[in-house]
């Protein structure tokens, strides 16, 4: 019998996902604290744009960017660019 590995056990996958989703939420909570602390000038915050001062700007930008990236690749680029594997040999 082959050795069981970490992710062979679905419970471990589930644990990993739980940890991951919690981290994501914690990051957003941390951002709230950070905004409060920088608004009260406890921490100096250097921003180049007003956008950056919004809660979770980087988080939501990253999320939206990646979803759009995948959707554009899947629904626009792939239909345009995909060819048979031996396309060049024909």
């Amino acid at each position: 019998m082959e050795k069981k590995h970490v992710f062979d056990d679905p419970r471990n996958v589930k644990r990993l996902l739980t940890v991951f989703f919690s981290t994501v939420v914690i990051l957003l909570i941390l951002d709230v604290f950070y905004i409060v602390l920088s608004k009260t000038h406890v921490i100096h915050r250097h921003v180049n744009y007003k956008w950056e001062e919004f809660w979770g700007f980087y988080a939501f930008y990253g999320f939206v960017a990646c979803v759009i990236l995948v959707l554009v690749s899947k629904y626009i680029l792939r239909p345009l660019a995909k060819r048979e594997e031996d396309y060049y040999d024909k």
């Binding site: 744009y49 007003k50 956008w51 919004f54 979770g56 700007f57 939501f60 930008y61 999320f63 939206v64 979803v67």
Partner: peptide
């Protein structure tokens, strides 16, 4: 749900002046 909300929020932020 997450994507729709994020998209709206992002649109709202980027609609603001950046400077």
């Amino acid at each position: 749900v997450v994507f729709t909300l994020s998209l709206l929020y992002m649109a709202f932020i980027l609609f603001q002046p950046c400077f």
